[in-house]
Simulated scan of single mutants.
Amino acid sequence: MLYLTKRVKRGVLLRAHCEIAATEVVPVIRAAVVYYLREHYKLSNYTIAKKIGTTASSVTNYLKERRGKSQKVMELLQDPELERMIRMIAKKIAEDSAEPEELSSMLCATCRLVMKKWKKQECVPLPSLW
């Protein structure tokens, strides 16, 4: 689904819902999951990186607030519904109890809720996973 996002010189810039999410929401969700894995499961940066499929330096960047704005991460974790979703994702990752497709669906569902709450945008509904 496309959204009109801002005016440019000769019209309006069209951006897909997921394009906005990929640049503005997903990094915050990933940072929140990394934070949760570190604080609640006491996993090392290397272990977190291995489990989420990135590098230890990327995990460090999330934890040092170079990726995913810390204010937004804390805002996400203070929302009970979103915090529960992040907690469930982190638990599945920490316990190695989810298939990649399941985690992808959980990330997508979390992203959709964040977009609805923060950006007041919705796209085609997915079946409930929670």
Rank of each mutant, 00 (worst) to 15 (best):
L126D: 13
L107I: 00
W118S: 04
A21F: 04
K92T: 03
K120G: 11
T5F: 10
L103M: 08
Y3Q: 09
H17S: 14
E122S: 11
L2Q: 08
M115Q: 00
K6D: 09
L76V: 03
E95T: 14
Y46P: 03
Q78H: 14
I86E: 13
G68S: 09
P127S: 10
L103P: 02
R30E: 10
K51P: 01
M85F: 04
L126G: 02
P100Q: 00
M74P: 07
T110F: 03
V26K: 12
C111R: 13
R38C: 07
N61L: 09
Q78K: 10
R87G: 05
R30T: 11
T110S: 06
L4T: 08
N61W: 02
Q78A: 08
E102G: 06
I93V: 09
K42N: 05
L113Q: 03
M88Y: 05
Q71D: 03
N45F: 11
A16C: 07
V12H: 01
Q71G: 08
G68D: 10
A90C: 05
A31G: 07
G53P: 00
S70K: 10
L103T: 01
A31D: 10
K72R: 13
T47C: 10
T23Y: 11
L43G: 06
K9P: 07
C108I: 05
R87Y: 12
D96N: 15
D96T: 12
V25Q: 01
E81T: 01
V73F: 06
V59F: 08
E99N: 14
V26N: 15
L2E: 13
S104R: 08
A94Q: 09
E83P: 02
V28S: 00
W130D: 00
W118H: 01
L63C: 05
K120T: 00
M115D: 00
K119A: 13
M1S: 12
Y3A: 11
I20M: 05
